[in-house]
Design a protein around this nucleic acid. Structure first.
Ligand SMILES: [Mn+2]
Ligand SMILES: [Mn+2]
Ligand SMILES: [Zn+2]
Ligand SMILES: [Zn+2]
Lengths: 161, 161
DNA sequence: TCAGAAATTGACAGTCATTTTCAATATGGA
DNA sequence: TCCATATTGAAAATGACTGTCAATTTCTGA
């Protein structure tokens, strides 16, 4: 029962520190966002909230996600889609993503060797790196197995992470 | 005098092979695109052409860039901006990018070690990678030098590559 | 050379995700 | 409690594209 997510407190602190107000809408939105624990789009988050509090507008979801970004509690990410997905990990955890093109699973990972090699390559070219973005697209274990042999059966692509 | 870019021929071949037609507009557009040799947006390419042939519409630029993609002669890329940039490198050269946040320079590079390490990390997680995207953001040598000490002076950010 | 089917073009309207505007409402410190 | 401010939601605006369509161009094959 993870009732007290420390991120909720951090967000409250951010609001107070910034002279902003705590509202019923913001409460609901950030709760639903962290509870989901996946890379959601604004629209997806909006729908989840709708089922419980139909009074909250999509605009407010967008605005609250922007605040979460400013607070360092979310990151906007552009995977293959036409829309932005929001990453509920603290901005100071620079990780990478593996995206399955069949089932939509998004797996996060961190690799020190990869990180340092990246730095080295950049330095050799005279660059000082402050941020990076690495996305690997392909097939997860399950989907790769299906793909082997005949054409894959289940064509669904429900994002899973 | 690089008057005969082999890519122009490849595009002509692609059109013929696909039952499509060679037009004045397409000629101008692909010429300007390859001549620029940078990661241009459709709008940027459009403006370059405007100065020489005001009769060509932005729509046609978009359509021709789509054809170049189908021909494997360009790749759409999403760097930090809100719009797509087009990469004039053959689609079968999978390279990465270093982007300077100050002057906008985009430097391309390829590193075999980085590539194989990426594969290894993905395999360890059960993924089969088919495509990847790596972008390193930071400061190029010149801009890093300016930044050292006082706050950087020249604030321009004209994309250079 | 030339007709005519098929492809192409450009203006304009439409789409889609996200942002801005603005009048009505809620919040929290004094 | 009061009330200056912050916030909200609806609707309109934005920006980067894509679809529609009538007019024009290309190119094949007689
Ligand atoms: Mn993530
Ligand atoms: Mn490139
Ligand atoms: Zn999968
Ligand atoms: Zn620079």
């Amino acid at each position: 029962m993870p009732e007290s997510d420390p991120r909720l407190q951090r967000f409250a602190d951010f609001l107070a520190r910034s002279g902003l107000k705590t509202t019923r809408q913001r409460e609901r939105i950030v709760r639903a966002f962290f509870a989901a624990g996946r890379h959601l789009s604004a629209e997806e988050l909006y729908h989840r909230i709708q089922t419980q509090d139909p009074g909250i507008g999509l605009v407010t979801v967008y605005r609250t996600l922007k605040l979460l970004r400013r607070a360092g509690l979310a990151t906007g990410r552009q995977f293959g889609d036409t829309y932005t997905r929001f990453d509920p990990n603290p901005a100071d955890w620079p990780h990478d993503h593996l995206i399955c093109k069949r089932c939509g699973k998004i797996q996060e990972f961190e690799d020190a060797g990869l990180h340092s090699l990246r730095e080295k390559v950049a330095r050799r070219l005279g660059f000082t790196v402050t941020e990076h973005k690495l996305e690997l697209y392909g097939f997860c274990r399950d989907c790769a197995r299906l793909g082997t042999g005949r054409a894959a059966r289940g064509r669904s692509a429900a994002r899973t992470a």
